[in-house]
Nucleic acid binder design. Structure first.
Lengths: 325, 325
DNA sequence: CTGAAAGCGCTAACAG
DNA sequence: CTGTTAGCGCTTTCAG
């Protein structure tokens, strides 16, 4: 189990100075093409890879972006993927820190700080406003997917109001008048969606009906069981996972979708196999914007607005139809 | 955006030497209880957190465990959670590196190496044997969840043979004779499960019927569409996600589960709401073992076997029943 | 128990 | 173009 080769090993074997190797490895000007190639080959030969810790320590910039995310959320996975590739394009590294039931956001963020990342991109991190603001004072912070009252951080999100509105309009256009909402409880964005739902129904002089839900399929199933007996003609759920749980209960109870009841999800995170009508948030776009925002702050470029709000799209698939069809 | 406080800042403010602060922060003997408390309070006051880069660089040990995982797999999320907590208990840190469609296992592992983690725990990383062996020569490697021909790495997994066998026996006991398998293609463990399925059916003089599947719900749905017309009485799928996709297609096609067809999943990764009969792998246990194994290698403790194989449990829920009930 | 001193592997000025 | 020289913030001897 021998130790990793160092810059010095490469230098020695290539017969040049460490500084030169450093220059070559970083790809900055200051070495002839011939030397460059030679050094690179030697490095390759002895399996040299720069020690990222040392590099981070020595450099004045770390070019490291810290990202929190909760595992097990398809939408977060999509965001992470986008963040990785946007960051790479801009020459930044990414370090992930997971939020799990036993590992709180605060803990995840602390880890990121210990790595001395230059900016933090927070996905799925529910932290209290004062703490978030304090964090925003220390380093550029971009919150993805949810709003915040804090003025110290950037926000990149999709408009919950617009998304819910699209969904409600779609259902109303189809002729639905009894539209229920399975909410997300304390989940990110849940409050905004709930409010938008209320507003949407009021706009059409309809009566809101909110059922407690959550983020998971199980929450959706629970809500489904609560709704199945006194069934509305349409249901808008907090997210796709929730919709899936609801659908499952409905279908098993012999309730046909979309014939007996229409269902609209949120996030477009489910594989298309379910053919769920849903409000789509463009994860790749959100990711790109979040990274751009963080980088802009780091590089002192002007950032137009603290908050960037994307407009979601409604994707009509096969779980919605006119009532009593 | 001021810089982070350093060890020196704490020392200055507490009126002691840097070395002492270091001792206190690491919690090693060498400081009086009074001093210890004082230093700790000062550190807390100025919001000091040790720089993990510097710590890693200076210490002879990094106590860092590198973990690959693919986002978007509930089973991996469970493993990650377990790894985090086991590592913490043993005084190790964890750094995650995601495998995504655009970020190959090799890339993810290289990142881990750049962080100079002392050992690697590979979950969901499909890499060729020679490369894996080469990696195993460099540092302790524990592969989780799948076997490998490589003799250079440790393996912690659940017996696919035993799991599939449990499932097949269960179905046969229920009276099924026409049992299909939706396989996992090239996914981890898919080959082993496929072989065990074949062996299981042969044991009972039944004819195997294998349908191409995959890891996702969509793959399961595709397989479901292929099976729905010439329906077996029972289906064993590569994993739960696959089972869910299959179920979805069946239920929509008016095929009742378990009345018309029984379905057995694998992983127990779905929320219980689906009431899926499935083969359960104990993620927490696997995680603990993987971490213990890695740590044992690092600390030169004896490791009994290269491979640890857990026995899975069959969890009978509501998707299996006798045929023609 | 405490302080001084030597690096860890790298980057970044600066001279040559 | 190339080599020299300082550190980055911390751990780790080793004397006081």
């Amino acid at each position: 189990m021998r130790t990793h080769p160092t810059l010095e090993d490469v230098a020695a074997r290539a017969g040049v100075s460490r500084a030169l190797v450093s220059i070559v490895m970083r790809g900055v000007p200051g070495a002839s093409a011939a030397t460059r190639e030679h050094v690179l080959r030697v490095a390759e030969q002895i399996g040299y890879r720069p020690d990222s810790r040392a590099r981070l320590l020595a450099g004045r910039r770390s070019r490291l972006l810290g990202v929190t995310l909760s595992l097990n959320h398809p939408f977060h996975a999509d965001l992470a993927e986008g963040i990785y590739s946007s960051a790479e394009q801009l020459g930044y590294e990414v370090v992930l820190s997971a939020i799990t039931p036993r590992r709180e956001p605060r803990r995840a963020i602390d880890t990121l700080l210990d790595y001395r990342c230059e900016a933090a991109i927070l996905v799925g991190a529910l932290v209290r406003e004062p703490w978030l603001s304090a964090l925003g004072e220390r380093l550029p912070v971009v919150v993805v997917g949810q709003g915040t009252r804090s003025q110290a951080v950037d926000v990149v999100r999709t408009s919950d109001a617009a998304g819910v509105r699209l969904a409600v309009e779609h259902l109303v256009d189809l002729g639905h008048r009894d539209i229920a909402h399975v909410d997300g409880g304390r989940a990110p964005g849940a409050a905004a969606r709930r409010n938008a739902y209320r507003a949407g129904l009021h706009r059409h002089a309809l009566t809101p009906r909110i059922v407690a839900g959550g983020q998971s399929e199980e929450d959706g199933a629970t809500a489904g069981r609560a709704l199945v007996d006194d069934r509305p003609t349409a249901v808008l759920t907090y997210n796709d996972r929730c919709a899936v749980g609801l659908l499952d209960v409905f279908v098993r109870a012999g309730v046909a979708v979309p014939d007996d009841v229409s269902v609209v999800g949120y996030d477009d995170s489910q594989a298309p196999y379910r053919r769920l009508t849903t409000v789509s948030q463009d994860a790749a776009h959100l990711a790109t914007l979040a990274v751009q925002r963080a980088v802009a702050r780091l590089e002192g470029e002007p950032v137009p607005d603290r908050e960037t709000v994307l407009t979601p799209r409604l994707i009509v698939r096969c779980t919605t139809a006119s009532p009593g069809r």
